[in-house]
Design a protein around this nucleic acid. Structure first.
Lengths: 151, 151
DNA sequence: ACGTAACAGTTGAGAATGTAACTATCAAGA
DNA sequence: TCTTGATAGTTACATTCTCAACTGTTACGT
């Protein structure tokens, strides 16, 4: 019973996550000087329109203090605003501003292009296999965002 | 052309890497109080017997300063020793000591068990798909360890 | 209504990290 | 041999992160 790291799931995921992140960060770092936590919060907001910090934290797997500071940084850029929740005054409803939205719209194609390059080099059948595996793994560990948001 | 994070590779990998690492770290944290960088360096050494810090750095995707500190911490525990290279005195040949080896041998089954739990819940066909996808991805980005070591 | 517990988000202090500069060594060419 | 440039690994400093404590608010049992 021996441990072969090349086949060990956490090892493989960590290494690949690092590589893919480094690859992807090129765009948002050079274009806008965003940090990784900032980008992650930003991308979630870009897609979902309005979120709470807790939601961002959960779906980015980032600690809530990290989110807090990322949101603050994006707020200083005037890329987002915080609104109140009618029913619960503890909650902040965070939304991108127009400039934030514009930056997001310019960034997205660059990010997608980088991913597309990788997927095309991977080939369709490998890409499909990867997706199937990831889907199954997430099924075990990740609660879908919609459940949280509607509930 | 819009960005759907749930389908975006770097996002998925980062999140899953985080989840799997947290899951796996249980064992080495509670048993031995190892940090993540320490565990990674340790696991590589456990598997390969002797490595240089540069090799550890490359195959763990950790920055060389991180490796330097992890190695130092493991050295303080007396879990590894540094030896000289005959031909190149810049190089350190790092090897586990007997106590290091023993700790490694006790840790490995715990780590494998945690992974096995996940894989069995995943099911064979999903696990196979995942492996195929990871293999293909690594083919693009990761040079096999043996190439480096023999070369 | 009151007290207690739970939750959303922020802040501060100490730990961990990355960048750049450094030492020591090696390799290659004039 | 001497110089220049590259490499292995460490150290210093500035940034970033995590943990715990905190504020303000809501939920709930009595």
């Amino acid at each position: 019973m021996s441990l072969i790291l090349e086949q060990f799931l956490p090892y493989r995921f960590n290494r690949m996550a690092e590589i893919l992140s480094k690859n992807a960060s090129q765009a948002y770092r050079t274009e806008y000087g965003l940090t990784r936590p900032e980008w992650r919060a930003f991308a979630l907001l870009g897609q979902y329109g309005t979120m709470t910090a807790t939601e961002i934290s959960y779906y980015s797997t980032m600690h809530k203090t990290k989110v807090s500071r990322a949101v603050y940084a994006l707020e200083k850029r005037r890329w987002l605003i915080r609104g109140q929740d009618e029913k619960d005054r503890r909650i902040e409803k965070i939304t991108l501003t127009l400039p934030g939205r514009k930056a997001y719209d310019r960034l997205v194609p660059l990010m997608l292009k980088a991913e597309e390059d990788i997927l095309s080099r991977l080939g369709k059948s490998n890409a499909d296999a990867l997706r199937q595996g990831l889907d199954a793994l997430e099924e075990l560990f990740v609660e879908p965002l919609e459940d949280k948001r509607s509930g």
